[in-house]
Design a protein around this nucleic acid. Structure first.
Lengths: 203, 203
DNA sequence: TCAAAAATAGTACTTCTGTTCTATAAATTA
DNA sequence: TAATTTATAGAACAGAAGTACTATTTTTGA
């Protein structure tokens, strides 16, 4: 990502924060005041540069339509790692950025509430929300991919997908359950698993 | 939630969709055109009602500052349940709505990348992102709550929190690891676990 | 049925806002 | 150092946009 001047960075940071807080972009004059400027021209100049460098975009002539092009705006700061047994670095700066909002908002993903324990060995458990992205061509699915698939006579389930020739195996992640082996024609892949969300409500 | 008239519902639906697509609200006149109206007044009227009924809000006098107050806008539709072993209903309508964006955007949560396997029995595994909400008063934590806590000499870890008197136990969800038992003064609770995210990148 | 609420059209007004232009100072880069 | 880019101020403009008002029709709900 192209580097920014200090003034541009300052405006960009403020902008990202403003949008995060207000859910909409500020006007140029609001930015002007926030930057302690006495004219809209400098703001405009910085915005042009931010746009040229690929940081933002907007609808020309329309008020408050600036969009942040990178995911940091809607994302969650990942402050560090947290340990199992041992210690980890104290979290100070932002190490990564987790983009959850933008992860599926634009695409056409959907969620499925997980029932049962057939994927327990993959750490997917009852109550989790499986986030599934529909696919167009189930033909080039990689073996081992976790999919939501509908099998004639079995309903829709979440399983690992394996294919050899015309034979398809849907393998649960739990030794309690047997793999489903059927011909490819009997399987309808609804989508692939792109994420799992689990919410905790204790406290 | 208070019921809407057909005209209000129509505008609301369009509005939610527009904001989802554009990342910013439309102007009143844009809504006017979209609703096939010839005057801004009807739109204004509907917006007032939507506001009165708690569906939206906006910054008075400022262009394109409408906010959707419910999570559906930023949420993910949950189309149904998906089975472990057995079948589930075919997903048709939206059963629930998963609000991930709004879940922490406003609050001050942060993510921590999980390292190790000490929470494996709670189905939290290496690479997951633990979403943690800072707390002010660690005193009224419910026993069993999963927290990110810093213990003198142990670094920061993710564990279940139990307290009896002045003694605190931090219990891993893995028999391989022993609980940490120390006095309350030695424990600094960084926050409670509110969610776990796991992204899959296969395909 | 009847009254109240809502929807609609039309108009007008003031403010907001993006944009443009000129000119100068500062900072950066070759 | 010299040249280019960037930052800044100031002013001005045209169109966009929220808002207010009146009046009429339609719909809703008691």
């Amino acid at each position: 990502m192209e580097i920014l001047t200090e003034a541009q960075q300052q405006l960009y940071d403020w902008l990202v924060d403003y949008i995060r807080q207000h859910q909409h972009a500020p006007s140029i004059r609001q930015m002007m005041r926030a930057m302690n400027l006495k004219s809209p021209a400098p703001v405009q100049s910085r915005l042009e540069h931010l746009k040229a460098k690929g940081y933002i975009e907007w609808e020309e002539g329309q008020a408050r339509t600036i969009r942040i092009l990178h995911s940091e705006a809607s994302g969650l700061p990942i402050l560090g790692a947290i340990a199992a047994g041992g210690l980890v670095e104290p979290f100070t700066d932002v190490k990564e950025q987790l983009d959850l909002s933008g992860f599926f908002d634009r695409s056409n993903c959907f969620g499925l509430r997980v029932v049962g324990d057939s994927m327990i060995d993959d750490f997917i458990t009852e109550g989790d929300v499986a986030i599934v992205q529909p696919i167009q061509e189930p033909s080039n699915l990689k073996n081992g991919t976790i999919v939501a698939a509908r099998v004639e006579g079995h309903g829709t389930t979440l399983k690992r997908f394996y294919r050899s020739g015309e034979q398809v195996m849907l393998k649960p992640a739990n030794p309690k359950y047997k793999p489903i082996e059927v011909s490819a024609t009997q399987v309808q892949v609804q989508g692939v698993l792109v994420g799992v969300w689990r919410g905790y409500f204790h406290r």
